[in-house]
Amino acid sequence: MKPILEIKDLHVHFYTYAGVVKAIAGVSFTVYEGETFALVGETGCGKSVTSRAITRLIESPGRIVKGSVIYHTKDGRKIDLLKLPEAELRAIRGKEIAYIFQDPTAALDPLYTSGYQVAEAMVVHRTVRSWKDGIKRAIEILRSVLIPDPEKRVKAYPHELSGGMKQRVVIGTSLSNRPRVLIADEPTTALDVTIQAQILKLIESLKRRHNATVMLITHNMGVVAEIADRVAVMYAGKIVEIGNVFQIFKNPQHPYTKGLLKAVPNPLIKVEKLESIPGTVPNLINPPPGCRFHPRCPFVMDVCRVEEPPMVEVEPGHQVACWLYTKR
């Protein structure tokens, strides 16, 4: 497997009045070409921030303080996206690495037609010759994301489309330049349950057609089980466990992953009763020392309170950051 994105030791801080929020503290993982990589965790664990930090879409008061994001280009070059000049990075955003945002209603500019916004992505990257060509291509793109009557819909404003339609427009915009990596940040959270499956199916089929790599950010374990190849579980700004989808669902190692899987209906194992994880997500201005999960962990040991656990491999391709699995 060839890596396409290598995130190494990423740190993102938010400088607020209440103090410095250490939202991402040393996140490292690798996404391989052609796979569907899922980043899961509860709200506020930093999965969205991680995904946006990849192309430096972090706005003030947030700042990427440390780390690197190595992107492997098509011709085999390796570039660190965090050190790239703004203009070069802009050429990659939306062309090689594209995003789908959570809320399609907010992601589309209400004052422009859907066709304009799809075409705009191609016009700014000069993948079409003119606006006229762009609009023509936009019709094809809207058809490919299964929007009925695309000739009419290109002239429609966002408020004239339903939520599912808007998300299709967003997906069409993102895929218009045939990106190599598609980062889908909770693409179905804001949609009706009935639409969710359609949108996921659409993303999957487009991924296969364009041979793209998908990075899916979600808190929905059902979605993960359905389309992910590999999974990284995040907790309070750190990755606690990485493995392929079978390893994570059948053989979860980290107490947090176990708790998370007990809290949702597991599609692979029959669960009698759903359980919740006691306690709440820690305040990231003063995160707990040692392992960030220790105040909520049922297997807490003395070492957990003082020292951060290292990532250890428990089986091929399955890593976990927990003192339970570290030989000392």
């Binding site: 192309t55 879409l57 706005e59 802009r90 050429a91 990659i92 955003r93 939306g94 062309k95 594209a98 995003y99 945002f101 809320d103 907010a106 992601a107 589309l108 500019d109 209400p110 004052l111 422009y112 705009e120 992505a121 700014v124 990257h125 967003v170 915009t173 993102s174």
Partner: peptide, 23 residues
Amino acid sequence: DYIEFLKAKGVPKLRLWRHALKN
């Protein structure tokens, strides 16, 4: 959010400001 999505699309600053100003 749409400004952030425009940034993610790779839209240059000037065009970004035009969207924002119109809104």
